[in-house]
Computed example of a mutant assay.
Amino acid sequence: MPVSARLTLPALGLAGLLLASAACSDTPEQAAASETRPASPYKATRLPGSYRTPDVTMTAADGRPYDLPARTKGKVTLLFFGFTNCPDVCPTTMADAAGALALLKPAERARVQVVFITADPKRDTPRVLADYLGRFDKSFVGLTGPIKTIMKAAADAKTPITPPGPDAKGNYQVSHGSNVMTYGPDGAGRLMFPYQFGSVDMAKDLRTLLATV
């Protein structure tokens, strides 16, 4: 059975910022400033607005081209990279996302799109993606395409993936980031949900985000 690696940092830049913050003690002036800084309304990690929806056109589960930024414009988009043979991270994350959508009001849910980009295009055909994602929520969009396009999308999303080698056969490992990258209706980065964030907290953060965009 294949195993997916849990790579949780969205980008070296953001990771470096977080690690640097953890490693350094605040000066009295910094401590005072942090006390007056308003608390984040989100439990998830905020993404810089410079993060953008990956500018790629891929193949959707219906076999048709899917222009990712154009098709998700106007919606809050949850983007995840994974593969259908993943035994743990991917099904858990998709179940969390489906559970979160189920907790939203119909009008809120209509403004959210979940997109799953495969890191294993050899096995994850459009039909396989449609069958897999349909088990969680039929509104989920599954995308595949040439590995070069997939790698570009992952780079744009600051999400690490390591596709299988060219001679990989049968059950093999596909390493991929485990975060869900979330973008606003304008395509700007908003939130990062880490692995096992949970449906309830995800729904709360999505509801808060939807109220501001």
Rank of each mutant, 00 (worst) to 15 (best):
L209G: 10
V174S: 02
L133D: 04
V112R: 02
A107G: 00
S4N: 01
A211D: 12
Q196A: 14
L103V: 05
Y66E: 01
V141C: 09
M58N: 02
S178C: 11
G82W: 12
D167M: 05
K169Y: 03
R123W: 00
L68Q: 04
D137C: 08
T8D: 13
Q173E: 12
R111M: 04
T72I: 06
T53D: 00
M151H: 10
G49S: 12
P65D: 08
T92I: 15
K204M: 06
V141Q: 08
L9D: 11
E35I: 03
F116Y: 15
L7C: 02
L104P: 04
V89W: 01
Y132R: 01
G74W: 02
E108W: 02
Q30L: 13
S50R: 04
A70T: 05
L19V: 09
G198I: 08
L14A: 09
G13V: 11
F193Y: 14
K105W: 01
P69G: 07
C86R: 04
V213R: 12
K73R: 15
F116I: 00
A70E: 13
T212E: 15
K43N: 01
C24A: 13
R64G: 08
M1Q: 07
S21G: 14
K158V: 05
D120A: 02
A22D: 12
G198C: 10
F136Y: 15
D26L: 15
K148D: 15
S34Q: 13
P194Y: 03
A22R: 15
P41F: 08
A100V: 10
R52Y: 05
P38S: 10
T77C: 03
Y42F: 15
V174R: 02
R46E: 09
P48T: 03
M192K: 09
G82P: 07
P126E: 11
A11T: 14
G49M: 01
G16H: 06
K158W: 09
V141P: 06
A39C: 00
R127E: 13
I161P: 00
A70D: 06
I150G: 05
V112M: 08
I147V: 13
R190L: 12
I161R: 02
T149V: 11
D26Q: 13
A98T: 09
A155N: 09
T77N: 07
S40Q: 01
T159G: 00
V56Y: 09
L7N: 03
R64A: 15
F193K: 00
P121E: 12
G63S: 05
C24Q: 13
I161V: 14
L17H: 12
P126F: 15
Q113K: 15
A130L: 07
K138Y: 00
P2M: 07
A97F: 08
D186R: 04
N171G: 07
T36L: 13
M94H: 11
K169I: 08
T93I: 11
D124F: 04
R109S: 11
D131E: 12
G63V: 04
R6V: 12
H176N: 09
L14T: 04
